[in-house]
Write a protein that binds this DNA or RNA. Sequence first.
DNA 1: TCATAAGCGAGACGGTACGTCCCGTCTTTAT
DNA 2: ATAAAGACGGGACGTACCGTCTCGCTTATGA
Lengths: 202, 202, 202, 202
Amino acid sequence: MAHKTAPDAGRRSERSRRATLEAALELVGEVGYPKLTIEAIAARAGVGKQTIYRWWPSKAAVLLDAFAALGEQAAAEAGESEIPDTGDLEADLKLVVRATVDELTSPRYDVPARALAAEGVVNPELGAEFVSRLLEPSLQLYVRRLRAAQEAGQAAPHLDPRVALELLVGPITHRWLLRTLPLSHAYADTLVETALHGIAPR
Amino acid sequence: MAHKTAPDAGRRSERSRRATLEAALELVGEVGYPKLTIEAIAARAGVGKQTIYRWWPSKAAVLLDAFAALGEQAAAEAGESEIPDTGDLEADLKLVVRATVDELTSPRYDVPARALAAEGVVNPELGAEFVSRLLEPSLQLYVRRLRAAQEAGQAAPHLDPRVALELLVGPITHRWLLRTLPLSHAYADTLVETALHGIAPR
Amino acid sequence: MAHKTAPDAGRRSERSRRATLEAALELVGEVGYPKLTIEAIAARAGVGKQTIYRWWPSKAAVLLDAFAALGEQAAAEAGESEIPDTGDLEADLKLVVRATVDELTSPRYDVPARALAAEGVVNPELGAEFVSRLLEPSLQLYVRRLRAAQEAGQAAPHLDPRVALELLVGPITHRWLLRTLPLSHAYADTLVETALHGIAPR
Amino acid sequence: MAHKTAPDAGRRSERSRRATLEAALELVGEVGYPKLTIEAIAARAGVGKQTIYRWWPSKAAVLLDAFAALGEQAAAEAGESEIPDTGDLEADLKLVVRATVDELTSPRYDVPARALAAEGVVNPELGAEFVSRLLEPSLQLYVRRLRAAQEAGQAAPHLDPRVALELLVGPITHRWLLRTLPLSHAYADTLVETALHGIAPR
DNA sequence: TCATAAGCGAGACGGTACGTCCCGTCTTTAT
DNA sequence: ATAAAGACGGGACGTACCGTCTCGCTTATGA
């Protein structure tokens, strides 16, 4: 069915792949996503344009791979870890939410992540890949911690962990993407408290 | 200071303005935001390109005006209303959240709204305008209803209404923009319940 | 029938037209026809590529116009003249044939003329235009001089002047295009003599 | 001196050589010379690109070999012959010139020959090879026949046979390459007569 | 009241980037 | 070592739009 016979991945140049991803990350930081150009990536990477088109369908896909590589590298260094379970759910959640705020606040993460999120908003295929490769793994950490909390009696037993997790992650994302109000550790703490105890009076 | 003497808004052609906004909305529905071009808008509207550049700085700004006009029209028809206050906070919130879900689910609203949100994610100026003109008024409705609830003893008294409102709006936005899971009335109800009573056991 | 509506020739920029033709002539002299590039012409002329594509279908067409302009300019300076009629056909023909040899020998004429001739050999449309605009007018000079010669009894009366003229022009072109043997005044003279008196013994 | 050690012609694959030449001839007929590409030749021939680059410097060189092979094959079939010498120079010349016209008129010969001629016009190295390998042998046939005619008193004794031959071959080439007027047997006859007896009255 | 200057439609212009084709080189695997 | 295969860096293609710039035309005052 495909028009073009797929390229032979076995012969792919690792050197070109890495140079392309690096160049993409650098450039998106320098000129921003809308002005990011495949031509510029190719030039910066010392790579032919065709080589990029051979392996990626769009600049968004390049950036997604680049950003994923960044994440894997960070994970390899830090040792991707579960959310801690000290028995104190509130304290444990404040820790992760604060860490998320820090991440979303650091420019080296912020710029490409925004770019990918924005592209995903408007491009469902890329959005799906963005979510499944980058977002979903983090969400699963919440699912596991919340389930443990339920078993330990620290969370309402009938709650769907997906819904519960969105109570924490949704507001953070909202502030981050829409820039309605600033992200801070103080906000992280308040958010966790409010999500745990609810809007209604006790 | 200005290089260009500002155009005389008094002589502006109303006919061209409307045609441009209509064309922009139509086209964004047909080809999607990334393929929306000012040339195509001008051609469809039967308007000179310069006329568009005279009054708007970018295609995003055109679309923002077009979308705002759509909203005003809807408001004029429906009579933009406060969130009802029946005394039952949970019921009142379910009503609005379900309505929001319906809106975000209808294609005529979804396509341009996503486009503007996506652009705003990556372009702070436009994002700020999007928020202040389109989002903030809706959020203020929540602020007022929640304050009333606090006075009536239906909401925890020390809560910041902004934080409370994000507990509802954040998860909805999260599902809408990132398409992690579907939006539905059932979800709206569960969300309101969870936000009201919190994750922790009663 | 045409896909693209024709551009409005009335609004054409004379400045761009001239700059394009000049750049084409310069470049063909510098890099040769096969390495002549529309991109390079545009860059040298300070003109957008689209402007060239708007008015010409190919680099060959640009060069044809450029070369024709060169010819008109030369004609305007020199006063395009008939072949002289001194009553001595042989002498008159030697004059023109020598002049033709000089022209074909000078690099400023040779390079673009070869390029156009070569392109015309392989591209019938361009070839037809090359012949009708650049070659045919010169051939008509021969036709008129030969007819006069026939009336004066200096040429066989039943001869088709087209055939006669090709006896002179054909061999010159042959040496020029195929580079079998060098062109020189001596050859011009011999050629005229042989063509006049024939191969057969008197 | 050579940068690259010359390939070992002894190990050359005859199969690849033939397939390449065949593919080149086929393709030039199908898409024309300007759109003929080495990649397409290689693909059609089922040959690696490198194999072509190893043995030929350019697509023109491939085509030249292909066309030469065509000629040798025709010669082998027909028995390449001298111009006949029946004692009647005019009749003998009409025969060859008519044959030449037929050849230049047949598409299977015309397309590649034009392509090579055109390339040679603009590329002196290839032109020289085209002339020496393909054209010159034919011209020598004329030289020999004309010398015989001079010895037999059928041609003016002091004539340079090269000049005489160009009187016949030049006009034919002119019409063929420049397409000024059609080639036909009638024209062949008129041309021979005019060349033999000259333009001047007897 | 009518010239005169603005906005307007149209679209040519100098540019930038697109995504594709092909160049000529290089590398891998198989014969 | 040659060959088929095809990835590679590179350059040009012809196209689509960008944002700016005239062009006439119309309209709507304000001298």
